[in-house]
Design a binder for these strands. Structure first.
Length: 356
DNA sequence: CTGATGGA
DNA sequence: TCCATCAGG
């Protein structure tokens, strides 16, 4: 789930994106695991059944990735997907916790199906969704066919995306989680891969979800803290590396403690109660000096429509008609927005360099 | 989630 | 053109 900074982020540290085209020309490093997981959880029938091909293999993630990437390219954004590598050892406990939650949800899903409770079934199906290695391989193959670059992170994808944004290779990172801010991403785009209307859980209400950009500089100045302070605040609230956080400390108190004492280490021990030992220094190091790589090239190669059709239609039983229609849109958008072949005038304009 | 469809 | 609804795989 990552660190929950939601309540700490003032409205004036966010820019709501009314039209995706405001990000035209920008390279955005998208948290691939996060995006696929969202598609996998969301693209389901009312009873929770995901989309599947004739062999029973799940295809929700491919459907979401394909159509969303097309929309992103149509808006003129240059996406690069960043995938997780080996999770840090410190994350083992959180990974285990998620596994337990998923298995429990899978049990409740079966119960809800038996009871004919569609709404619960769908909810538990979403909660029990698990992204497999095969799904990630499928996704990478589809991106290759579409000419969209992807980067294999050595460890955390969010750390790698943040690093690429810090270097100026990307304008922003994109994820639903806030972790990339703790990894130092200068800008975080949320809701890039889930715009539209979203149903509130357990309610017959819908909210309009729009993409938003959170600027790290602005966030820090509004909160009146340094970047390292923000990492400390995250640790007090709880991160994937110390999911329980500290007893009785929410956003308000975390901010206050860090401001008063200057760092987690300087906060008097009696104020920091935790059921388990927390290695603050080790966690801090994960955020401040994460394992990342320079071994990537951001190249938007020409799409291979036949390869796209081979994957989606040939292997996964997508409708050829729908895929062809989407590909037409995509190839046009790719030529105009990525290649810059609009009206044959591209040679008059300088190629954009560093982002930001 | 996303695109297609059909009625207002 | 807008929106609600449905199906997609």
């Amino acid at each position: 789930m990552g660190v929950d900074l939601r309540e700490l982020i003032p409205d004036d540290a966010k820019i709501i994106i009314e039209d995706l085209r405001t990000l035209r020309g920008r390279v955005i490093a998208i948290d691939g695991y996060n995006a696929l997981y969202q598609f996998l959880a969301a693209i389901r029938q009312p009873d929770g059944t995901p989309l599947m091909d004739g062999s029973g293999r799940i295809t929700s993630h491919l459907s979401g990735l394909f159509y969303r990437t097309i929309n992103i390219v149509e808006a003129g954004i240059k996406p690069v997907y960043v995938f997780d590598g080996k999770p840090p050892e410190l994350k083992a406990k959180e990974i285990e916790r998620r596994r337990v939650v998923r298995e429990e949800a899978a049990r409740k899903y079966e119960e809800a199906v038996q009871a004919g409770d569609l709404e619960s079934a769908r909810r538990y199906a979403m909660m029990s969704a698990r992204l497999t290695d095969e799904m990630v391989r499928d996704a990478k193959a589809l991106l290759d066919a579409m000419g969209i670059p992807w980067v294999q992170a050595p460890a955390e994808g969010e750390a790698q995306a943040a690093y690429m944004a810090r270097k100026g290779d990307a304008y922003a990172s994109a994820s639903q989680d806030y972790d990339s801010l703790l990894f130092g991403s200068p800008r975080l785009v949320r809701n890039l891969t889930i715009s539209g209307r979203r149903k509130l859980p357990r309610r017959e209400e819908y909210v309009e979800v729009k993409p938003e950009v959170i600027e790290l500089d602005k966030l820090l100045s509004k909160l009146g803290v340094t970047y390292e302070n923000l990492v400390d605040i995250g640790i007090l609230l709880g991160t994937d590396y110390n999911p329980d956080g500290f007893e009785g400390i929410g956003p308000k108190k975390a901010l206050q403690l860090v401001k008063v004492y200057g760092s987690v280490e300087k906060i008097p021990k009696p104020l920091l109660k935790s059921p388990v030992e927390v290695d603050v220094a080790a966690i801090k190091k994960y955020f401040l000096q994460p394992q990342v790589t320079d071994n990537y090239r951001l190249e938007w190669r020409n799409p291979d429509p036949e390869a796209v059709k081979r994957i989606l239609v040939g292997e996964h039983d997508f409708s050829a008609e729908r895929v062809n229609a989407a590909l037409d849109r995509y190839l046009k958008a790719f030529r105009e927005n990525i290649r810059g072949e609009q009206k044959g005038l591209s040679k008059w304009f300088a190629k954009p360099g560093k982002q930001g």
